[in-house]
Design a protein around this nucleic acid. Structure first.
Lengths: 243, 243
DNA sequence: CGCATTGTTGAAACGCGTCAACGAGTGTGG
DNA sequence: CCACACTCGTTGACGCGTTTCAACAATGCG
């Protein structure tokens, strides 16, 4: 097996052992590289006929706006994640996507993806697995907002983000670099920014973790996992499931 | 086009105009019919090697349990919906599934589904669309729990259920038969049963809708839609998108 | 007919939101 | 080099939506 070129290859490699040919096909999908600045939506709710992207570097959030002006962030995307894959199937996008940092992303049109699946069918299984994992994360997020209090919810969310980043080599058990503001975190957790601030202080003063200066640091990983009831069975892989 | 035999055929027919052959393949998927009583889980979180199902009649809920004993219902499934399709890809199911009523469901093994896709590729597109619609609903549910207050959330949820039921011929604009208890509704909405009761009373006294005696009745549909900020663009189809 | 489940209502407690003020960090232009 | 604006983080006081607890009525099932 050759070196893992891209975050996507690295992520999928955790599920399917990728051959040289499959890696080459994945690389081809990254041919039309584009750069977007932070803060400018690359896709907007209601918009039609947009492309999908594979995120190569930087962070992105997908969100929905409500008439009252409030916002719910559905998920953050990190390198190796697809952007707008689901919306491509509908006539119109059902959510908006905004880069949190400057990002690099590869434009992928539906036919190209289907071609890749025909050439290397195991890639289809891997992508389907990735999509299912994304859905599982949205479900876990839903459960957190519905039935966890602010402390558990915040801890769980930051732990999950860490596990995802670890899969693409951007985190360790110690922590990770995190460009999120407390406002963004609040919109993701369904809380107010003020309350997120208080919760983060609590977690810090309890010696569990810190969220400061663009970095998340886990000081008591086990304690956090217990507090958040964090179960990473669907994110954690010692090796490929399909060989 | 022949008569629509099953709720699934009816639902997919709203997206893809199905040929006689495609309808026949769909019918074949319904060959191994099984019946389950209400209240007994047909799939449990953590369980491995389970099959997927197509729901033919009755209602089902998929949920997650938290250590404190509380429960979050992720979604209700109605006739024509898939059960456990996502979990099949993981080693273990990431949620539990419980029939709310006595149900009839057809067992579907992964290979059978893939066979059907090979025989009639347009079915694959239709199923993918259905899966994406499911994900879109989970996302909308997430937004509701995160950023809508109890009244808006309840109204939105019951409106969406109505739209889904209409797709399979089990509802009109007037309302629909609904076997849900206020407790189930509470676990779905991330509220307490007591508060759900109060909210339902409010909606009733405002002349908007009733939720009584196993039936949902819309009295002021437009008022409800406005209150809930309900947008059914991803559920509403005047005719097939793919011909 | 009796018992469990579901629905209903009130009162009190609590978590989180809102409002408001201020400090720290950062980039911009004079 | 400083002044300014702007975003982000921080903290306190107060109010409101929702939960919890408790009791009882209505319904349905064996």
């Amino acid at each position: 097996m050759t070196a893992l070129h891209t975050p996507l290859a690295r992520k999928l490699g955790a599920f399917v052992a990728l051959s040289a040919k499959e890696l080459a096909v994945l690389d081809q999908l990254h041919s039309r590289r584009r750069v977007f600045p932070a803060g400018l939506d690359i896709m907007h709710e209601g918009q039609t006929n947009h492309a999908a992207y594979i995120l190569a570097s930087g962070w992105v959030c997908s969100y929905k706006l409500l008439p009252g002006g409030s916002r719910q962030i559905v998920d953050f995307q990190i390198p190796g994640d697809f952007l707008g894959l689901r919306s491509v199937l509908f006539r119109t996008a059902d959510h908006s996507i905004e880069p949190i940092t400057r990002i690099e992303a590869s434009e992928v049109l539906a036919p190209e993806l289907l071609d890749a699946f025909n050439t290397t069918p195991r890639l289809a299984a891997a992508v389907l697995w990735a999509a299912s994992r994304d859905e599982a994360m949205v479900v876990e997020h839903l459960v957190g907002i519905g039935r966890r209090d602010a402390r558990e919810r915040t801890a769980h969310f930051l732990l999950e983000l860490g596990a995802r980043l670890k899969l693409v080599g951007l985190a360790t058990t110690e922590g990770y670099a995190c460009p999120l503001s407390q406002y963004l975190l609040a919109d993701a957790l369904g809380l107010s920014a003020v309350h997120v601030n208080r919760v983060l202080r609590e977690l810090r003063e309890a010696g569990l973790m810190t969220f400061q200066h663009g970095a998340v640091t886990f000081q008591d990983f086990k304690g956090l996992v217990k507090l958040a009831d964090f179960d990473l069975h669907y994110l954690d892989h010692d090796g490929p499931l399909l060989r």
